Simulated scan of single mutants.
Amino acid sequence: MIRIPAGQVAAGHLPPVCPRHGEHALEMKKLRLISKPPSWAAVLILLGGIVYLIVVMALRKTVHAAAWPWCEQCKAARSRNLGIGLGVLGLGLLLIVVGIATIDGSAGPLLFLVGLVALVVGIVFAARGGAQAVSGAFVSQDGNFVEIAKDDPRFGQALGGRQAQYR
């Protein structure tokens, strides 16, 4: 894992090398990176989804990356996940509508159920196509660092002596 100071990321002082794949960056994208929710917050789901969301939103740390390196593999992964996710999401919606329309028949409830499952799968794939999910970068709990769990060694070499920390 590599930790980059949040100020350095916000200022856009990153080398043109993809942190995840180590390839030369095709473009430098503006990204909004957020922190992961604390592990203890999962218990709050028992109190209700709204309570969980309020606590997570209140504790969230955000860093606006001015220029995040984006390579061809990142672009392909984003397109692939969004394409699969939105396609399965559309199929799920279609199956739900057909299931409701044929609710009196024997296949109606099954189509509706399969549509609901496809809807959840589509949402998961579409979420994995988000820019932050593809980049694999998260803000630390204190908000002082951007952490990349699966970084490529070539990115660390390109950073050189620029205050990056390895764990």
Score class of each variant (00 low, 15 high):
A6F: 03
V9T: 09
V9A: 06
A11N: 01
G12L: 01
G12Q: 02
H13A: 03
P15N: 02
P16S: 13
P16W: 04
G22I: 05
E23W: 10
H24T: 15
L26H: 14
E27R: 15
K29Y: 10
P38G: 00
P38K: 03
S39M: 05
A42F: 01
I45A: 02
I45F: 00
I45R: 12
L46M: 10
G48V: 07
G49H: 04
V51S: 00
V51G: 00
Y52H: 12
V55N: 03
V55W: 07
L59K: 14
L59V: 10
L59Q: 13
H64C: 06
A66D: 14
W70K: 00
E72W: 09
C74D: 11
A76W: 11
A77V: 10
R78T: 08
S79A: 15
L82G: 03
G83R: 10
L86N: 14
L86S: 10
L89P: 09
G90E: 08
L93I: 13
L94N: 09
T102V: 05
D104C: 07
D104V: 14
L110Y: 11
L111N: 02
V114T: 07
V114G: 01
G115N: 02
G115L: 03
L116I: 12
V117I: 15
A118F: 15
A118V: 09
I123N: 01
I123H: 05
V124I: 14
A126N: 05
G129H: 05
A131H: 04
A131S: 13
G136I: 05
V139I: 02
V139E: 04
Q141R: 14
G143M: 08
E147M: 14
D152R: 11
P153M: 10
A158P: 00
A158I: 03
L159A: 04
L159S: 03
G160Q: 12
G161V: 08
Q163K: 13
Y166V: 14
